[in-house]
């Protein structure tokens, strides 16, 4: 073969090893993103819907958030508490869309369970309806809170610590505590 050396042979890190490393790193990032997706997709959408977003917008927002996570990780971003990171980004994305965060009072549609899923006897259907009614009351009560109280309470219900809620909502930890206290007391009165 015509092995004519053209141009200057500049930096010579063996290319294939560099690429191999990149390849492995990217594969790891991709895997990490999809792992997070499998774990957090449902609770994230639940969170956004509970805040008053419609199902389709919530789905799109979550999709966008995971693309951003991928970008974040590829860029070598911080990997500590990706869950809180995802909620923060989703929350901010949602706030920027028109449909989000209108009063969640308007979003009191029942959590419709597809009828086919309910292969249960009459007694348990009745129980389901009762549970549904109780959940609706809670949703209505939460819908009457301030946005900050509502956000804090829903995140708390999803198992976040105050420190994490503060991170998601960009509030101080003490403000989170106050919002939770006020919100919880209001809901308690309403139920």
């Amino acid at each position: 073969m015509g092995n004519s050396v053209v141009g200057q042979a500049d930096t010579l890190p063996l290319p294939s090893t560099t690429w191999k490393a990149d390849y492995l790193q990217d594969t790891a990032v991709r895997r990490l993103v999809l792992e997070q997706y499998d774990r957090e997709c449902v609770p994230l959408r639940r969170y956004l819907q509970f805040l008053g977003m419609d199902a389709d917008s919530a789905q799109e927002t979550v999709h966008e958030a995971f693309l951003k996570l991928h970008q974040h990780l590829l860029g070598g971003g911080d990997r500590a508490n990706l869950r809180a990171w995802l909620y923060r980004v989703s929350h901010n994305l949602a706030r920027n869309t028109q449909s989000a965060f209108r009063s969640s009072r308007t979003d009191s549609l029942p959590d419709v369970t597809v009828s086919g899923e309910l292969a249960s006897p009459a007694a348990s259907i009745e129980q389901e309806l009762l549970a549904e009614e109780r959940n609706r009351l809670v949703r209505d009560a939460i819908g009457g809170l301030s946005a900050a109280q509502r956000d804090c309470l829903v995140l708390r219900a999803q198992g976040f610590k105050y420190r994490e809620i503060a991170e998601v909502l960009n509030l101080s930890v003490s403000t989170v505590g106050e919002n939770i206290q006020r919100g919880l007391e209001k809901v308690k009165e309403l139920l």
Binding site: V33, L34, Y37, D38, C41, V42, R45, R46, Y47, Q49, F50, A55, A58, Q59, H63, F66, L67, D111, V112, T113, A131, E132, R134, N135, V138, R139, I142, L153, V154, R156, A157, Q158, L184, V187, K188, L191
Partner: peptide, 25 residues
């Protein structure tokens, strides 16, 4: 009350399809 809020949040229905994951991939 905290428990009731947790139940209500967890009961929120979310429709999932594998197409969404494929699209993300």
């Amino acid at each position: 009350v905290s428990g009731r809020i947790e139940s209500a949040v967890a009961a929120r229905q979310v429709e999932l399809s594998s197409e969404q994951r494929t699209r993300l991939e």
